[in-house]
């Protein structure tokens, strides 16, 4: 039964990825601009290429990138390529391969987002559960209000405030970048420290708001759980407050949070595009913005495909994990 469901889920996953990939292929075809012409016009302006030759060059490049072939042919090529995670050559950063561009950006984003998300989830969930547990304490009401305010503010606005006060004014942290422009990336201690130093402000701006979001969500669930009959019975059983809080309250209230967490991971790739842009962080967000403004279709395809796969996988993950933490859906 369980196996059958997993199989069905995986098939659905493949279908979703296919449908989304197809949509992703055809949607940009509607764009009124030819990326090659765009790129060449841009080149003509900056490097003085004769404007009259642009049409001629366009044709040559169209042939080079295969854009002169019929749409359906390109569609099947596209499907074949993405199945092997080969997204071809970038137009904007020619002759770099899209796979390499993504490969360079992805670790930055994942490193920043996954660590921050896990830490915020742990802190936010605990604080939120405790805030509900001690609802009558003035301190916890104040904490809840502050968390509520933070949860409403977009990450990048907090980022701007942090940059202004802690980087520009106090000078404790660099204003932008993933590492100093003077150092060479490598697997050594001093570079690692530098990367960490650069990541503190972006991480903090995400964490402040998302701790608020997790805490407020958890607080609401915990309040609901506290009204459940089993909490009354647990109290009547004379259990220790610690056990009631952890095994009866938190254990039940956390269930929807876990679903949200898994779905949150699905959005890791684009979860903080603006934070990356604000901080000039060399991750997927900046790559996405760059490729869109330069009409670099192969790179856009690549990013979007990665995104769809992470979302679909995270949904599959929810389906697989949930029965393990909630016996009611196990049957």
């Amino acid at each position: 039964m369980y196996l059958q469901r997993i199989l069905k889920r995986i098939l659905t996953l493949l279908a979703v990825i296919w449908a989304a990939a197809t949509l992703n292929f055809f949607l940009p075809q509607l764009a009124p601009k030819n990326p090659i012409t765009e790129k060449l016009t841009q080149l003509a302006e900056t490097s003085g290429v004769d404007g009259n030759r642009i049409a001629e060059l366009t044709e040559a490049f169209n042939a080079r990138f295969g854009l002169d072939r019929p749409l359906w042919e390109r569609y099947f090529d596209y499907l074949g390529d993405i199945a092997t995670f080969d997204f071809g050559l970038s137009i904007a950063s020619y002759p770099a391969r899209v796979g390499d561009l993504i490969g360079a950006a992805l670790p930055w984003t994942i490193g920043l987002m996954v660590t921050t998300t896990l830490i915020s989830f742990a802190i936010g969930t605990l604080v939120g559960a405790y805030a509900a547990w001690r609802r009558d304490s003035v301190l916890m009401q104040a904490v809840s209000s502050v968390l509520m305010v933070f949860s409403a503010i977009p990450f990048y606005l907090i980022g701007l405030v942090l940059i202004y006060f802690l980087a520009a004014k106090a000078g404790w942290f660099p204003i932008s970048g993933g590492y100093s422009i003077f150092s060479i990336p490598g697997w050594n201690w001093s570079f690692a420290v530098e990367v960490f130093h650069h990541s503190i402000l972006p991480a903090l701006s995400i964490a402040i708001a998302s701790i608020g979001i997790w805490a407020i969500g958890m607080r609401g669930m915990m309040v609901t759980v506290q009204g459940e009959d089993y909490m009354t019975f647990a109290k009547a059983k004379g259990l220790t407050p610690r056990r009631i809080f952890l095994r009866y309250g938190l254990r039940n209230a956390i269930l929807p949070q876990v679903t949200t967490l898994a779905l949150f991971f699905g959005q890791v790739v684009t979860g903080a595009v603006l934070v990356e842009i604000v901080f000039g962080y060399p991750g997927m967000g900046n790559l996405l913005l760059e490729s869109i403004t330069l009409f670099d279709y192969p790179t856009i395809y690549g990013i979007v495909f990665i995104l769809i796969v992470t979302i679909a996988v995270s949904m599959l993950l929810v389906d697989l994990i949930y029965p393990l933490i909630d016996p009611r859906v196990r049957t």
């Binding site: 459940e228 009959d229 089993y230 009354t232 019975f233 647990a234 109290k235 009547a236 059983k237 004379g238 259990l239 220790t240 095994r247 009866y248 254990r251 039940n252 269930l255 933490i325 909630d326 016996p327 009611r328």
Partner: peptide
Amino acid sequence: VRSSRLRRVAYIPQGAMNSLNPVL
């Protein structure tokens, strides 16, 4: 207070449907 519950005075709840912790 806590120690006397269950040991001296025990309680059988009304909503039997929801009185047990669903995850234990």
